[in-house]
Design a protein around this nucleic acid. Sequence first.
DNA 1: CTGAAAGCGCTAACAC
DNA 2: GTGTTAGCGCTTTCAG
Lengths: 371, 371
Amino acid sequence: MGAKATTVYDVAEHAGVSIATVSRVLRRPGDVRDSTRERVLASVKALGYVPSASARGLAARRTGVVGLFFPDFDAMRETTAFVPDRSGAVPVVADPPAEDATGSDLLYFDEVLRGAEIEAWRNGLVLLVGVGRGEDSLSIVSDIAGRVDGLAVLAGSVPDEMLEHIARRIPVVLIAGPRRDDEFDHVSVDNRAGMRALADHVFDTREIDGVLYVRGVASTPDDAERFDGFSEALSARAVADRPGLSVVSAEFSRERARVIGSSLASSGHIPDAVICANDQMALGILDAFRDHGVDVPRRVLVAGFDGIDAGRHSEPRLTTVEQPMEDLGRAAVHVLTQRLANPSQPPVTLRLPVKVLVRESTTPGPPTPRG
Amino acid sequence: MGAKATTVYDVAEHAGVSIATVSRVLRRPGDVRDSTRERVLASVKALGYVPSASARGLAARRTGVVGLFFPDFDAMRETTAFVPDRSGAVPVVADPPAEDATGSDLLYFDEVLRGAEIEAWRNGLVLLVGVGRGEDSLSIVSDIAGRVDGLAVLAGSVPDEMLEHIARRIPVVLIAGPRRDDEFDHVSVDNRAGMRALADHVFDTREIDGVLYVRGVASTPDDAERFDGFSEALSARAVADRPGLSVVSAEFSRERARVIGSSLASSGHIPDAVICANDQMALGILDAFRDHGVDVPRRVLVAGFDGIDAGRHSEPRLTTVEQPMEDLGRAAVHVLTQRLANPSQPPVTLRLPVKVLVRESTTPGPPTPRG
DNA sequence: CTGAAAGCGCTAACAC
DNA sequence: GTGTTAGCGCTTTCAG
C-alpha cells in the first residue's frame, strides 16, 4: 500500500518494450502483436500496475467522467460526525407506526443520483458526485468542474455567473427549475402540464362547485408553474360549470396544511375538492379531515403533487402527480453525452412528462380493483 | 463552450505574474501579497479559469477523490435505453395498492451511496461512483482505482486478486460480506448479533414451544451468520424451555415463502413463531397466514431481517432487524480517510451494530401506543 | 514574496 | 508493429 506506485516506465522495462507499447496494449490492444501484448499484460499483472487517470486525463484531454453537483440540503448538514460504535450491543426498540413520514430533499436526490448513475453506466462513463458546502460551494463546484468532461447541476444551486464561468470549459446541463432560454442545456419536469392534467382529472371525476387550491408561500418557480397549470384547467372549462375558486398559501409543510384543513373543517365551509401544490400539504389536509370526520373522497376530493412515498400509504391513499426523478438524472447525463459527442448542437431543453396517479383520495366509487 | 480551456499560463500572463504565483494564489493564498492575489483572482474571473484536476492530481499525487465501486445489479442491467419523450402528454393512470413492494438491491445501494456521500462531504472529499459491467468489471474497477486516493468496494464484487492488485496503489476498504482476516480494511454489519437479539426478543415475548426458521437456499455468508446467531439464541436457553426447532430453506423471495407459509397453514402444523433470514420471506409468510386466517401475532409470531420499507407498511407491521446501510457507507469512507491520514495503521475491521425494531408482528398485547 | 525550472505519468503524432 | 519524443497543466523545490 505504501510503496511508490508502478508506472508505465516500470511496466515497459519489465516487459522489455517502450512505454508507448504499454499504452497501446491498454488502449488499443488490436494494434499490438499478440505475443507482445501478452508479455506486457503479464508485466502489468506482476507489477500490480494501475494506470493513473490523472496522467491519462491530462494527456488525452478527456477524463471519461461526468459530474453531478447538488447543494448541501438541510438533511445533510444536520448529520453528525460519524463515530464508529464498537460496543456491539444490539438495541431492541419499539418502532411505532410513523405518523408523519417526511420525505426529505435527500430522498429525491437519491433518485436523481440513481438515474444519473444508470445512464453514466450505460454510456461507459463514471459519475463524480459533488455536494456543496455553504460558503465553499463555489470553489467546490469549480473543483468538480475541473475533473470532469461535463457537469450536471441542480438548478438554483449555483449562481449563473459561476455556471457561465464553468461552461467556458465544459458543457453544463441544468436539472429541474423553471424553463430558461439561454445557452445551457436543461432538463426539467413539466409542472404546468402535470397540474393541468391533475386538475382536469379532479374536475372530471364529479361535479365540483367549489375548489380550494393550496399553494406554497415562497413562490418558487415550481409553485408558480403548477399554479399556472391549475388556472389553465379552470379557465378551460365552460363558465357554467367552472368551480368557484379559493386559494390559500401555506408553508410547504404537512403541519401547516393540517392547521388550514382543521379551520376549514370546523368552519363548515368545506369545498368539493382540495388541490395542493405538493403532497406534504395534501397529507396535512387529509390528516385534518380525518380528525374532523370529513369523508375523503365522498365529501371532498383531495390531491397533491410530487408522488412521495408517504402518499402511497396514507388513508385514503393520495392521488398525485408523480415526478420522474430518476428520469431527470438519466436525462441530464443523456443530454451531456449528446453534447459531448456534438458540441455545436443548439441548446437542448427536455421537459419530462409527469404522470397522474389516481388513488382513493379522488375515487369516490368502489375501491379500485386489485390487479 | 468550444474554445480551448484557459490554463495557468493564460492567467499568469493576464495578471502579469508567473504560473507559480497563480498556483500559490489558489493553493496557499496566505503566501502571496494581497495586491498580487487580488490581481490574479481578477484574472481568474475574467478568463473563466477552472484548474484542471488531472494536471493537479498528476503533479500533487493526490486527487481528493474517494471511489465507491459496486457491481451491476440486475435492476440496473434490466434498465432500457433512455429515450426522451417529447410528446408532452400526461398519462392519467389508476395506481392500485401495491401488494408486493419488492425492495431491490438498488435500494440498498442508494443508502450506502448516500452514507458515503455524506461522509465524503464532511471530509472535504468528492465521491466517484463506479458500477461494474459484467465482463468489463475488472477493467472498470481498475480504471476507477486509477483516479482516486482510496477505494471502497462492495464485498464480493471484485476478485481478491484484483483487490490485492489495486491495494498496491491505494487503500481499499471492503463493504459488507463476512468477516475476513487479511490486510484489507473492512466494514460490515453484525448479522450474527442481530439475529441473536431478534431471536431472544421473540423467545422472551411469550412461551414458544415450536419455532420455524426460514433460511435462504444459497447459503451466502450473510445467511450463515444469521443462522449462527439464531442457533446461539436457541442453545443459550435452558433445555427445559428451549423451543422445538424446524428449519426450511427457500429462495430469498416473497413468493416462495408464501407457498411455504400456505402449506404450513393448511397442514395445521403451525409453530408458535416463524423467524426468517430476510424480510421478503417474512412478508411472504405473513401473506400466507393472512390468506389462511392465521392470526399474527396472536397465534404465531413472525419476524424478519433487513428492515425493508415494505415491512413498515405490512399488516401487521413486521418486526425486523434494521441494517444500517447508510452507516455502512459512512463507515467505509470514514475508515478510508483514517487510513489515508495514517497509512501504516493495522487493518481496521468495523462491525456495525444493528437494531431490532419491534413491531406488531411480534407484539401480541395491545397495539403499541402512538408516540 | 516571487520566478525559474524540473518533473508528475500518460497519450499521440511521427518516424522507423 | 514498435520506439521516440513532445507536450498535457499543474505543484513544488530552490534561488533570488
